[in-house]
Amino acid sequence: MSEAIPPAPAPSAPAGRIHDISYRHLSAPLRPGRWRWWPITRHGLRTLHHRSRFLRVLLWLAWVPAVVKGVQIYLAHSADQVPMLGKLAAQTSLLRIDPQFFLQAALSQSLLLWLALLTCARLISDDLKVGALQVYLAKPLTRLDYVLGKSGVVVGLLLMILVLPTLAVYLCALLLDPGSSFLVQHGWVVLPLLGFEAFVIATLTVTVLGLSSLSSSGPFVTVLLLGAYIFSSAVSGILKTIYRDPRLALLGLWNNYEQIGHALFGLEPPEPVSIWASVALTTGLALLAALALRWRVRAVQVIG
């Protein structure tokens, strides 16, 4: 006798709606640490890197001047052995490894540095545009944490564009020096080099974030940044030519950094103007930007 076919099993009872089974209370309350800004920096750098092919290209291009400088250092050390190079070294300053050489290594990054800053133009303006500030500030974060996190993005970028390549040039000079003459004569340049770069990074970071917080329009902030670099330099150049007054050079933002850089390296500044004027202009601009940040970075904008 054939075995009776068992009835088909009844469809199992629904296990419940998904939301009935997947909400879980945390086992312990969260305790945000002191580095509350770090996720903002990490996320910002990752997003910029993923989204901007332009930035990825810039990060590679930033090493081109360093490679050229490295070759110059190599050739300078080979000048004793190759007569033709010896002649060249005597006739030009191309193969002279001195403070000016390192200052130029830092200053030559200026275009790339500004282009990198353009990619940061939307750091705060995008958050203002989509109302994301409320998301940030409704979490256990202060406004300072938010600004520090965003600053970390700019600082991180400028470290990669400005500091790492120039430090590599310095290390190259140290490593390729057959004796220790470079260390004895010019080893100290690492201090003004880092000091200058720290000043550039600190003031430009605050300035860029301040400009970014001024508007919720990314393109507008980009135009402001371009104006701060290209337009101000062009205007200062034109006015200086017309009026032949060296003080007008200070209208160009980057000219001020060049003045400060020369002073820090103990070199004659390009313009016969007190470097304190340049310090006042750049830090003053950064302070204004800090005020803008303080005014604009709020969970609630109170107008009037």
């Binding site: 969260l30 996720p39 958050d127 109302g131 994301a132 998301v135 940030y136």
Partner: peptide
């Protein structure tokens, strides 16, 4: 305390999972 704001507040260029995970990282 958690806040679900009235206005749209999504960080551009993120997918949902990244956005929500990011909110968690901001909380520690």
């Amino acid at each position: 305390v958690g806040l679900m704001p009235e206005v749209d507040c999504h960080i551009p260029g993120m997918n949902a999972i990244r956005f929500v995970a990011y909110a968690g990282e901001l909380c520690g």
